[in-house]
């Protein structure tokens, strides 16, 4: 396997847990134990109700395309061979949004509202990234 050169997350704090779940093939977000609000990216307390009590809760992994950009010219050297690619904001059923990518849809075929479902891409032995694929409208 050739060396993976794209940037990787630092597995520190809550981020270690987030990507740890991804490695197990599950998408988890923080959910407030007091008011039930889901949140992403990880935070220390609930910005809605102020509670410090929270749990990692499993997301359905289903959502839809909220918006995206198509990178025609990479502004980071590691992505030069990837163009064109489309960093995409996915809005999950739980209400949180996640920046990711839809793997099986060409950038020019993306549509806002397109239903998608999480898949997992192991990019190194340690890191698995949550990506998405198109699903039929429910």
């Amino acid at each position: 396997m050739s060396e993976y050169t794209k940037p990787l997350p630092e597995l520190e704090g809550h981020t270690k847990d987030f990507y740890g779940f991804c490695k197990q093939g599950e998408l988890h977000f923080q959910r407030c134990s007091a008011c039930g609000t889901w949140r992403h990216v990880p935070r220390e307390l609930c910005a809605e109700c102020g509670s410090w009590d929270w749990e990692w809760a499993r997301s359905s992994g289903r959502g839809e395309v909220y918006t995206w950009t198509v990178v025609g010219r990479a502004l980071h050297p590691a992505f030069q061979q990837s163009c064109p690619y489309a960093p995409t904001v996915i809005e999950l059923e739980e209400g949180v949004r996640l920046l990711s990518e839809v793997l099986d849809v060409a950038p020019e075929a993306l549509e806002i509202g397109m239903p998608v479902e999480v898949v997992f891409e192991a990019v190194t032995d340690e890191i698995t990234l949550p990506k998405f694929k198109r699903v039929a409208a429910s």
């Binding site: 940037p7 997350p9 520190e12 960093p87 920046l99």
Partner: peptide, 17 residues
């Protein structure tokens, strides 16, 4: 660190993006 951990791995790296 949010950009590093949740944007950059997906190639969401710069202001125009």
């Amino acid at each position: 660190a949010i950009a590093r951990d949740y944007y950059l791995p997906f190639g969401f790296t710069a202001p125009p993006q």
